Amino acid sequence: MVDKNEIKGAAKEMGGKVKETAGKATGNERMEAEGKVDQVEGKTQKNYGKVKDAVKDQTHSH
């Protein structure tokens, strides 16, 4: 089962990519930087969810 952090993290990462692209297209460096930060936060949250899910799977399989 997919952890909710994986889903939220993936959404934040995707939103960050959109924000970064919009920032590049409009020449808005702040928006571009915020998009990059959102992507890193999203990846971190997604990976946290994967680890949490893997630990849960391991504890339930034993």
Rank of each mutant, 00 (worst) to 15 (best):
K12H: 08
G16L: 05
Q58A: 10
G49D: 03
K43R: 07
K12P: 03
K52C: 01
T26W: 03
T59M: 15
R30N: 13
G15H: 05
D53F: 04
V55E: 07
G27S: 02
A54S: 13
N47W: 05
K24L: 03
K50C: 00
G42E: 05
S61N: 09
E32Q: 15
A11C: 05
D53N: 09
E6T: 09
V51E: 10
K24D: 06
R30P: 01
K56E: 09
K50E: 15
Q39W: 00
K43L: 07
G35W: 01
T59L: 11
S61A: 12
K50F: 06
K46S: 05
V51N: 07
K4A: 08
Y48E: 09
V55H: 06
R30I: 13
K46C: 00
T26E: 10
D53E: 15
G15L: 11
K24A: 04
T59W: 10
K4D: 09
G49V: 03
E20Q: 10
I7M: 04
G35Y: 02
H60L: 14
K24R: 11
Q45E: 12
D57N: 13
A10M: 09
K36T: 11
V2D: 13
K46M: 02
D3P: 00
T44H: 08
G9Y: 02
V55C: 02
S61K: 14
D53T: 14
D38A: 11
